[in-house]
Design a protein around this nucleic acid. Structure first.
Lengths: 336, 336
DNA sequence: GTCGTTAGTGTAAGCGCTTTCATCCTGCAG
DNA sequence: CTGCAGGATGAAAGCGCTTACACTAACGAC
């Protein structure tokens, strides 16, 4: 691999001049520029990004910490973040936290150790204090789906409470009054918020939340199945169920079917996230859309603008989910 | 951020000594080591990885180029690669090629420019020559799902032909004789191989491939829907259909249902990939398992062993897909 | 003709680390 | 007491780049 030195020799100029044309900044005479470019071409010169980083103290790397790298939500998030960063010539490096305190800390440290210029974090377990300290001592931080006290303008958030409200309201509007709820793990803020929304919708219709109709899952298929099984076993009557995410809804649907009920004739179901495959289910799942692509994009854009000083469209920080009506929920007493 | 220099001063030793304890190599007396470690701790010293890379010419970065970052196949692949690399303290950086020649080239260059120690590539459009040249001039290359002439030992491959064979054979074994096929884009090697396998299975049962039952999709839901629509419109009789991937199978299932047929009573369907959500479909999709996690893991392990010289379990380079029997295909004339 | 400008270029000092080689002890054999 | 081996440490030269600063022409104004 040719170095800048060899280019400078071949072109008969100094290192500084070559560096100038590489960073096509500064004024370099047209003649010199051409000479240098010719030399670079001849040697197939490519700047060593490591050396550049050391000299400039800029790595052009953005660290991204998410719970998982794949799955309907995080896969899409990661993908959109990488895309917007890449288009600006920046590079994303990833770490996973699995909603675990220790792993999240390790992940953050890992990314900081790699000298990232900024960090995009989707985390659950780390305390506000830890994060404020990180921020103080190092790279700028952006948060997805979490609001940190005093750093609100670094947070790209989803109104999960509103989403939970919409999901349950969808069933209420269809005439359902006995509505079961399968929550996500309540140590997670979004799971709590979605549940709150559910309760607000009930309240709006003058219904008291019935603890017997409220179960907690794990955001995974297995938890959804288990929870659904318990609800069905409990003997409680209900005509609809809302699940705090699509994955659990998929698990619940299997169980409902395996018990001989049909959807939506016997039971309506509503999910949350609008996973790409939610419309592959049968019946196609009515759910709440989590605009995860957009939120990822905004996180990337925030970094581009606030860290790298690039221009661009404004960053939208707050998102409201919307209901996606499909066929898994229908009016009670509707023509079945 | 403290530098090695400050540590050396505080500990009262030279830079070289600090470096030695950091890389806990070489013989350093216990007393000195302790002094240095104390100083590091006091200053909260963390080595600057960029400077280390520059000095050692090792970045500990592995570039990964895939078609997409998300989706059932690539999401899982990326995730497992990142995991195995991370556990060894290496870092993965990603680029996407979208099966497009120009984008794949750009992606490879991008990764090379970042001084990756090795590249893991899942590519379609680049020629063998281009790749051989890359290999010659730079970082070691590993390929997933592609066999390159002369570099077979760098290739982690899936026997797609066998997979295609299994999918079709599953229907044949169930008594089906009129079997439609929805292929992936035929510019992709795996799509061609799966189709070949399909034909081999037919031949094994003494059946000639019927061009009227063979359509080409795009590996996406939309293409599956379109292709299924065409097959149904054509008026050709068939009792089963195999799709070259699950995504198209999902699209096909919607169309089948929307035309008033039921699965598997009227039509059996088999997919390929065993996407995580394939078992969420109704009926749960019979499909061919693409052991994408394992293959990603092997690619990572290959790098760990061959590039970084780490020990580890042997690398399995060739994989055979297996049939996953669920409910979307049933015996012809079976109790419906 | 002189002088101040200024565009264009070069010099050299880092960036924070690794690593070769030389140096310095310490201890032990003779 | 001398000499020497060998372990522990330090000095210093890079790794490939950027950039502050110095320098040189060339040019116009006076």
């Amino acid at each position: 691999m040719a170095t800048i030195y060899e280019v400078s020799r071949l072109a008969g100029v100094s290192l500084a001049t070559v560096s100038r044309v590489v960073n096509n900044s500064d004024r370099v005479s047209a003649r010199t520029r051409e000479k240098v470019q010719a030399a670079m071409k001849e040697l197939d010169y490519r700047p060593n990004s490591i050396a550049q980083s050391l000299a400039t103290n800029r790595t052009n790397c953005v660290g991204v910490l998410v719970s998982e790298l794949h799955g309907p939500v995080f896969g899409a998030m990661v993908s959109s973040i990488e895309k917007v960063l890449r288009e600006a010539g920046k590079i994303a490096i990833f770490a996973t936290g699995h909603n675990d305190r220790a792993k999240e800390e390790k992940g953050v440290e890992f990314l900081i150790d790699r000298s990232c210029d900024a960090l995009i974090l989707h985390i659950e377990a780390l305390s506000d204090e830890f994060l404020q300290k990180c921020q103080a001592s190092g790279a700028p931080l952006v948060f997805i789906n979490r609001s940190i006290e005093g750093m609100e303008d670094h947070c790209i958030v989803l109104d999960n409470e509103h989403g939970g409200y919409l999901a349950t309201k969808a069933l209420l509007d269809l005439g359902h009054r006995q509505i079961a709820y399968i929550a996500g793990p309540l140590e997670l803020g979004d799971a709590r918020a979605r549940l709150e929304g559910h309760k607000r919708a009930l309240a709006e219709y003058g219904l008291a939340p019935d603890p017997a109709l409220e179960t907690v899952g794990d955001y995974h298929e297995a938890g959804g199945s288990r929870a659904m099984g318990e609800l069905l076993d409990s003997g409680q009557a209900f005509t609809g169920v809302v699940c705090a995410n699509d994955e659990m809804a998929a698990g619940a649907m299997s169980v409902i079917r395996s018990r001989g009920f049909s959807i939506p004739e016997d039971l309506s179901i509503v999910g949350f996230d609008n996973a790409r495959w939610a419309r592959y289910l049968y019946p196609r799942l009515t759910t709440v859309d989590y605009p995860v692509d957009q939120m990822g994009q905004m996180a990337g854009r925030w970094v581009l603008q606030n860290v790298y000083g690039l221009e661009g469209d404004p960053v939208q920080r707050a998102f409201r989910p919307e209901l996606v009506v499909r066929e898994s929920a229908r009016a009670i007493g509707g023509d079945a």
